Computed example of a mutant assay.
Amino acid sequence: MMSTYLTFSISISVISWIVGMAVNAILRKTEFYEKKLSNLNFVENKKLNKIIGIGIFKWIVKNTFFKFFNQKLKLKKKIKENDLNKLRSEMTISEIDHLIGFVFVSIFALAKFYNFNFLFGFTIMIVNVLMNLYPSLLQQENKRRINKLINKTVINKVFA
């Protein structure tokens, strides 16, 4: 029974990536995306990121097969401001894709909770957090780091 729950949870989470990409493709054309969604920041505190395990998650992404998933999110050795802006844009797209996926899968989990199938709903949410929420939080952390680099590049241009 547990293997069925886990299989479904992983499957629906992978499907949610496609749903997230499709919905996000539509949202990117709106003003709401540019003004609100592209600047989300749920966990600004570095200590809290560490407590919830974003560092461990980052290590897993960098050192396992997950590193091959989104090749657009790589930083080259030589950095230009334009490259940083493109990278930040790709990170935002990935972040929002995963957030949409998280909401999509959460609906399934809530339906299981509503039907008093708590173990199934809990299993779905654990997998959902690992496959959708954590990647989104990692992108937010990376975007904050990219923003610092962009600001540093702009400041260096002003004073050069």
Rank of each mutant, 00 (worst) to 15 (best):
K46V: 13
Y33L: 05
A25I: 00
V43C: 05
G20Y: 07
E34A: 10
I26N: 01
W17F: 03
L40C: 02
R28M: 08
F32H: 09
Y33I: 05
G20H: 10
N24H: 07
T30W: 10
S16P: 02
V23L: 07
E34F: 06
K46I: 14
E44D: 08
L48P: 02
I18Y: 09
L37M: 08
M21Y: 05
S38H: 10
A25N: 13
I15R: 01
T30I: 07
L40M: 09
L27I: 13
S16V: 08
K46M: 07
F42A: 06
K36W: 08
T30S: 15
K46P: 10
V19A: 01
R28V: 10
F32S: 13
S16N: 01
V19T: 02
T30P: 05
A22Y: 03
V23M: 03
M21L: 07
L48M: 06
I15F: 05
S38K: 15
I15C: 00
K47T: 14
L37Y: 05
I18Q: 09
K36N: 14
N45T: 05
N41K: 12
E31L: 13
I18M: 12
A22P: 01
L27S: 12
M21I: 00
V23W: 02
K46F: 07
N24F: 03
K36H: 06
I15P: 01
N24R: 14
K29W: 03
N49A: 11
L27M: 14
L37H: 14
Y33P: 08
K35C: 00
E34G: 06
E34Q: 13
N39T: 12
F32C: 11
L48A: 07
S38P: 11
N41F: 06
F32V: 11
K36I: 11
A25T: 04
A22G: 04
A25K: 10
F32G: 14
E44T: 04
K29S: 12
S16M: 03
W17Q: 00
W17S: 00
F32N: 09
L37I: 03
G20R: 08
M21N: 09
K46R: 12
L40I: 04
V23R: 02
I26D: 02
L40A: 02
S16F: 03
F42R: 03
E34V: 08
K35A: 11
N45Q: 06
V23Y: 00
I26L: 08
N45P: 03
V23Q: 00
I15D: 03
R28A: 05
L48Y: 07
V23K: 00
N45I: 09
N49S: 08
S16H: 04
G20A: 04
T30Y: 11
L48R: 01
N41D: 06
E31M: 13
V19L: 01
E31W: 15
I26R: 06
L27W: 05
N24E: 11
G20C: 07
F42P: 04
S38F: 10
V43W: 11
W17R: 01
N39R: 13
V19I: 08
K47V: 15
K29V: 04
N39E: 10
I26Y: 03
T30D: 12
A25Q: 09
K36R: 13
I18C: 05
